[in-house]
Simulated assay, not measured.
Amino acid sequence: MSSPTPIRITGVTTLVVNAEMRNWIFVKVQTDQDGLYGWGEASLNWKTRAVAATVEDLEPLLIGKDPRDIEQIVRILNKHSYYKLGIIGATAISGIEHALWDIFGKSVGLPVWRLLGGQTRNEVRVYTHLGLGDMRSVYETFDEGALRDKALAVVEKGYDALKVVFIPYSHYSVDIPSRRHVGRLMKVLREAVGESVDIMVDFHGRPATVAGALQYIEELAPYSPMFCEEPVQPGDTQALRMVTERANCPIASGERLVGYKEFEPLFEQKALHIIQPDLNHTGGILEGKKIAAAAEQAMMGVAPHNPNGPIAGAAALHYDISIPNFVIQEEMSGAVPWYDDVVSTPMRRVGSAWQIPHAPGLGVEINEAEAAKHPFKPEVMHTLSAVLGDGTIVDW
């Protein structure tokens, strides 16, 4: 399908699919070549309408451009918007950028990972969450018995790594019962899954102090977590470095950072061990490649964040194949019963690893008629539960 003549973008649209606990925002970039279009994803929890409107606002900057000029187009979207776009704008650009890569791959008959520099591994290790896509299980499992049962269900599906979110809502001090409860939960989890399964603990930035984060880590470390994620709020590089220097286990962070510039201080100060860019939010695959290259020089691994939808997963798969310092990939395939009715993806899991795809582009196709059966709905506002007993609002 390769063409010596320019390809021109003729339109950009969004398709919102409500996946029960969150909305997927699919982005379709159309061209003047018959049958040549690309799919991307720009999902952002609780910001669906804002992101979709931003894509619409950006569309005029794309019309008439050759979709294969990805670096130039992303530069236009960032610079010609004038005001800094923030997470909403960066997410919109990420979805558009994914679709451009899809078009590029299709236009030359190659999978995107080939265009990113080729293959650096034979498979992509993945992990999932409690509940296998049920977000209530992810964020609301604080009972020891339920934790054990849900973890074993994940292992029974063939995964050898899983993530949990059971750090209590915290503030400037951590009480002894809360710390001990975290220790008991981790002990139950490790005894249930054994030492051959990796466990990641997501703090969600809940502790408001370095000391509080370290007190929880002290409870977790004896049970060898693969990493503790986002132990403090993003943006305070010095606090993160202090945790990393004192923690007796690997520390990871980065999902809420936008673009290379926000990651750069972490590399300069060697503020963590594992970086977690989200290709759905940080500006796209090209920006993710720049982040991974800098992380490698800073002796950091890359474990991309992705609790999003199927196209975001496909973009992550191609990215992971192409970067040498990849560690493990978060994934949410099969998050709803009708997943395979709406989308065909290149992700094929054997055990706890995705296999290498060979279809052109991202290898994704959307059944738009089936997708239309699941229109936008307001998402569950988990954040409303982040309130202490005295009414103090804390980080979710």
Rank of each mutant, 00 (worst) to 15 (best):
R206C: 01
S137V: 02
D340R: 09
K65L: 13
Y37E: 14
P177V: 07
P234N: 11
W46K: 00
D390A: 03
T5H: 11
D143S: 14
I274F: 13
G40W: 03
G64M: 10
K157T: 13
K47Y: 11
G183M: 07
R241E: 12
Q215L: 12
L44W: 07
G288T: 10
K79F: 12
G391S: 09
F376T: 11
G205I: 02
V188D: 06
Q297I: 08
I88W: 01
N18R: 02
T31F: 04
A298V: 03
L272P: 05
L388Y: 00
I63L: 14
L36Q: 10
P67G: 11
V16S: 07
D34W: 03
I73P: 06
A221P: 01
E20C: 02
E218L: 01
P6M: 13
P168V: 03
I328D: 03
E262N: 11
S196V: 01
E331H: 12
N280H: 05
M332H: 10
T13S: 14
L162P: 05
I63E: 04
G284Y: 05
N45W: 12
V232C: 04
H305C: 09
D32M: 10
V387D: 08
A192Q: 06
I285D: 14
V74G: 13
V29I: 11
H374A: 06
G283S: 02
S3F: 09
T54P: 00
V16P: 03
G313K: 01
V16D: 12
P357F: 04
G117P: 11
S196F: 00
T128N: 10
K106L: 05
F227S: 04
A239R: 08
D69N: 14
R68Y: 06
T54E: 11
K290A: 12
G283E: 13
L162V: 09
Q233P: 07
P250I: 02
V210P: 12
S178W: 06
A315Q: 13
L116R: 05
V210T: 11
N45P: 00
R206W: 01
G95A: 13
K65A: 14
I9D: 11
G118D: 13
A314S: 11
A315L: 03
V193Y: 04
Q33M: 04
M1I: 06
L286M: 13
N18L: 09
P67D: 14
I323F: 03
S352K: 02
A369P: 00
V327W: 02
N45F: 02
L286K: 10
V138S: 05
M300D: 12
V188R: 06
R184K: 15
T54C: 14
E229P: 01
A192F: 04
T141E: 12
E245V: 14
V12L: 10
V188H: 05
I103K: 02
V112D: 08
M347Y: 04
I25Y: 04
A353L: 10
D198Y: 07
A316F: 08
G361T: 03
R49V: 08
F26G: 09
M200P: 05
S2H: 06
S196Y: 03
L85Q: 14
E268Y: 09
V138L: 14
T5C: 01
F263E: 07
H80K: 10
P310K: 06
E296W: 01
F376S: 10
G158I: 02
E59F: 00
D143R: 06
S352R: 00
L384T: 13
A19L: 14
E20V: 14
T244Y: 11
N45T: 10
I321P: 09
M135F: 10
